[in-house]
């Protein structure tokens, strides 16, 4: 059996499928409970209880929501482009899932340990905008379209500085492989020497995932619900799941790039099976920051958002990139220095 799985082509396919299954099922559970956690955390911060009716402490609330979504009718507006209208949520959800193929949760525990892992993640996250644009356009409706346009500009803008942040990390590591990036943080997590980049990265991930305070693409007080205004039932659920899966993905990226991935803090000697636990704990901390931000900050205005991206983050991250490269070169710390 083992031999079949590891040595034949068909076996390889089956093995990969099994791996994907083993990753995605817990992931979807996490997504479900992230929505629960968000409501609980926001509730606590606003001095109210949050969901507490369905099941003990409201723990079954996510499933109740899911069933409700499943039962509802998928409405396709009469003026909409049905194919693209339905394609958009699938795209959003699918992209949020396939990005996970390269995320290592422990040393070597990734479905695909590829050489250009960071670029793959960056590529997938830069595709996220298509779900939004297509949904906005295919809905054939004013507010979704406005939301889509806002989102397109916003995500493209923040990707630029995100790219520079990643390049900073890559300079320190000398590889695009996610496994190597984590292993390079054995002496010190990158969030310490690259602290400003860490902050910029975190804020950019907020913008990439359309989270508060950068949730202007959906800004419910101005353009109702933005790009998913016309969606209902499962189509909406897919957007919803995709958004939360993306949050977890971005949290994982932050963990891998800056918080040492599965490595224990302060070099505490722990058995290697503890790796995923550390990883999840760090993810949870980052996610808590996501929720905390949402509870704390009012929504940015559109021009402020653009100003922040292009006039503050971009020059600063460019400057820091040059600084990092200069320091590495001056002290001879460049990896692969030949």
């Amino acid at each position: 059996m083992i031999d079949f799985l590891f040595n034949t082509t068909l076996g390889f396919f089956i093995l990969t499928l099994l791996k994907a299954f083993a990753l995605l099922v817990p992931l979807l559970m996490c997504v479900a409970y992230l929505t629960y956690a968000e409501r609980k955390v926001l509730g606590a911060m606003q001095m109210r209880k949050g969901p507490n009716v369905v099941g003990p402490f409201g723990l079954f609330q996510p499933f109740a929501d899911a069933i409700k979504m499943l039962m509802k009718e998928t409405i396709i507006p009469s003026g909409a482009n049905p194919v693209l209208f339905l394609l958009a949520p699938m795209l959003t959800f699918g992209l949020a899932m396939i990005a996970w193929a390269v995320i290592p949760v422990n040393d070597g525990w990734a479905i695909a340990d590829i050489n250009v892992g960071v670029l793959y993640l960056f590529a997938i996250s830069s595709l996220g905008v298509y779900g939004v644009i297509i949904s906005g356009w295919a809905s054939n409706s004013k507010y979704p379209f406005l939301g889509a346009l806002r989102s397109a500009a916003q995500m493209v803008s923040y990707e630029v500085s995100m790219g520079f942040v990643m390049v900073c990390v890559l300079l320190c590591v000398g590889s695009l492989n996610l496994n190597k990036i984590v292993m390079a943080q054995q002496t010190i997590w990158f969030c310490i020497p690259l602290f400003p980049m860490f902050v910029i990265f975190f804020i950019s991930t907020l913008a990439e995932t359309n989270r508060a305070p950068f949730d202007i693409p959906e800004g419910e007080s101005e353009i109702v619900a933005g790009f998913f205004l016309e969606y209902s039932a499962m189509a909406f659920a897919l957007f919803f799941l995709g958004e939360y899966a993306n949050m977890i993905l971005m949290a994982s990226m932050t963990t891998i790039l800056f918080l040492g991935g599965w490595l224990p803090p302060f070099g505490i000697p722990t058995p290697s099976w503890m790796g995923p636990i550390w990883f999840i704990l760090k993810d949870c901390v980052v996610l808590f920051f996501f929720l905390w931000t949402r509870a704390t900050f009012p929504r940015y205005r559109y021009d402020q958002l653009m100003r922040l991206g292009w006039k503050v983050f971009l020059p600063f991250s460019l400057f820091y990139l040059v600084l990092v490269a200069g320091v590495l070169l001056a002290f001879g710390w460049l990896p692969h220095a030949a």
Binding site: I114, N115, V116, L119, Y120, F122, A123, S126, L127, V129, Y130, I133, W137, F145, A148, L149, A152, A153, M155, V156, E159, G163, L176
Partner: peptide
């Protein structure tokens, strides 16, 4: 050429085509 593949997606799909789409929709 995995690097080129990723860069193609990032630059052309992730940035250039978005702006294309943006303009064409407008």
């Amino acid at each position: 050429a995995e690097f080129l593949a990723m860069i193609l997606v990032i630059v052309y799909v992730g940035a250039v085509a978005v702006l294309f789409l943006f303009v064409v929709m407008m």
